[in-house]
């Protein structure tokens, strides 16, 4: 019996090249303490990478959108400001790919 691997079970949508895509980057605003970034920077210094004086962490989201969605820019912006980012502490950037 063959053990199924991921390539045998493509996630529906991933193969549909015609879907629109967007990538959203969320990062903490300048001035907001990023304890994770600070810790990573300290680790780098310990590893001997003395030239890397600051690290800011963040996260990104890949969105796949069915073709023909109305008002897409507006929708993505709303998704970002209401859910993906907390505007009190975070900024976001939207990158559209089609």
């Amino acid at each position: 019996m063959r053990i199924p691997i991921n390539e045998d079970r493509p996630i529906e949508g991933n193969l549909m090249a015609e879907n629109e895509k967007a990538v959203v980057h969320v990062r903490l605003k300048d001035g907001v303490l990023d304890p994770q970034g600070v810790t990573i920077q300290k680790a780098l210094a310990q590893m001997g990478f003395d030239d890397f004086v600051s690290v800011r962490s963040g996260r990104f989201f890949e969105l796949e959108i069915s073709v023909g969605a109305d008002n897409l820019d507006h929708q993505i912006d709303e998704i970002c400001s209401k859910l993906l980012a907390n505007p009190v502490i975070e900024n976001y950037e939207i990158e559209r790919k089609s």
Binding site: P35, V88, I89
Partner: peptide, 16 residues
């Protein structure tokens, strides 16, 4: 805070 009923935000403890 997320719901906007109180101002500000709660971020990761400074010592992680």
């Amino acid at each position: 805070t997320e719901a906007g009923l109180l101002p500000g935000a709660l971020i990761r403890n400074s010592h992680l």
